[in-house]
Design a protein around this nucleic acid. Structure first.
Lengths: 178, 178
DNA sequence: AGGTTTGTAAAGTAAATACTGTACAAACTA
DNA sequence: TAGTTTGTACAGTATTTACTTTACAAACCT
């Protein structure tokens, strides 16, 4: 197969770039390499295929492919007659990007909102407390202001993710440049 | 100072939530704790203040504060008469979020675009190559298609970040909910 | 100038994470 | 039914990363 080397080199370059930047998705370079390899495979792969391609243990393939699935970057496919689990990359990269935000940021936002609300309520009680020193109340007042500001910010983030999930973002930034 | 305990507890809750989610910014929980602690300090802090507050080494404070500065989450301030370096948190969280994307994604995008363009050009040469087998050319054709697709995607990402940097995003998702 | 103070580089240590090999349960095969 | 195959939990090892201690250069102060 004359020319296969050049082809592989062209692929390798892109795969390695993915591996080096995939930390933005919160996974390791190995996961990036796996993803990149799968990207250039036109057919779905089994764990044994991956093990073969990357020269890593099957256990690693299992855990890496799971982490990519959790991020919706890889999906399982079924093919009749095939017993092994098959996986392929999610082809819609725009959607993958959106899913990344949903999965990674939503939970963080709700944790933050929960913590802030609880603290705000505790501080409100403190402001009512007759025993609390004026000095403390003064600080509490500052904190309440700050917490209200960041609460607003997290609500904004939440609406931002809505805009991605609802694909409203494409009206601001269209998929194709005009 | 009656009530100080409750105040500190309310702060601690928020700080710990930041620490647990700061990995989204690509830094460690310690950096998150530092950031959170600084957030509730109304005055700028020196490295020694931080060391004191967190009970960590001064070297760690230096490296952590630098990583937060790189993300534009913390900024250095000057105060006449004070010899030590002073730092405070960037108050505009919306801007910090935008800066996060600029700093973290821009470089990744340009690396990707560079690699893809190079590989596309190599594959184009391969297609012209008389010696290359038809089988290889067929694969190369597939790869070119895929690479053109993801190149388009990265250009979209680039324009997306423009929309953040230019604050156009606020016309789609306003800061305050109406 | 000499003597401090301040921030960070460099080297070493402790802790966390990534990866492997073994073991086994669940699903399939005959 | 017993015998395979397949995916993953678990335990152990290797590598990486986070943090500390020591050391020192640069800036400041008499």
């Amino acid at each position: 197969m004359e020319g296969k080397e050049q082809l592989d080199k062209a692929r390798e370059r892109v795969i390695e770039t993915i591996a080096q930047n995939i930390h933005l998705y919160g996974v390791t370079p190995s996961a990036g390499r796996l993803y990149g390899m799968m990207f250039f495979h036109h057919e779905p792969l089994t764990l044994d295929d991956m093990k073969e391609e990357l020269g890593m243990s099957k256990t690693s393939m299992s855990t890496l492919v799971r982490s990519l699935s959790d991020l919706k970057m890889v999906e399982q496919v079924w093919k009749k007659g095939v017993r092994k689990d098959l996986y392929k990359v999610e082809e819609d990269w725009y959607q993958s990007f959106i899913d990344l935000f949903s999965t990674k940021w939503r939970s963080a936002i709700s944790m933050h909102i929960h913590a802030i609300k609880k603290s705000l309520s505790d501080l409100a009680k403190l402001m009512e407390d007759g025993d609390a020193s004026n000095e403390v109340k003064e600080m509490a007042k500052f904190d309440i202001e700050k917490l209200e500001y960041i609460l607003e910010y997290y609500h904004w983030l939440d609406r931002l993710i809505d805009a991605f999930e609802d694909h409203d973002i494409f009206s601001l930034v269209p998929r194709k440049e005009e």
